[in-house]
């Protein structure tokens, strides 16, 4: 299996000041070739101002099965939101 060309995840910064966003993946023999390939595959129409490539094998992802355990508990914590607090309209924006 060692002859397979490694997989890379590609992140593009769409505009000045924004964070890089994941946009897809591609195969390349090393990081430099992955960058060149990402430029050709993902930025042909001015989609980006900067590219990151990360070996896919290096990414640790949460298990979709754990979705509820991980994220459901925030649903009942409404006191984390500004609208939970009663501030009279007369006070103005706060």
């Amino acid at each position: 299996m060692t002859n397979e060309t490694p997989l890379w995840e590609v992140f593009i910064r769409p505009r000045n000041g924004l964070a890089h966003r994941h946009c897809g993946s591609l195969h390349a023999a090393d990081a430099e070739m992955a960058l060149q390939a990402a430029r050709d595959v993902y930025t042909r129409r001015g989609e980006g101002t900067s590219i990151w490539v990360v070996p896919s094998a290096e990414i640790t992802a949460s298990d979709p099965k754990d979705k509820d355990a991980l994220f459901e508990p925030t649903a009942d914590k409404i006191y984390r939101h500004p609208t939970f607090y009663d501030i009279p309209d007369d006070v103005g924006h706060m």
Partner: peptide
């Protein structure tokens, strides 16, 4: 500085309840 500005956007968004709970 990009990373500082982006961190601040996140912080400001999350912090909007802090002042209201204090005033309340």
């Amino acid at each position: 500085y990009g990373p500082y500005a982006r961190a601040m956007i996140r912080v400001c968004k999350e912090e909007s309840f802090h002042q209201r709970q204090g005033y309340e």
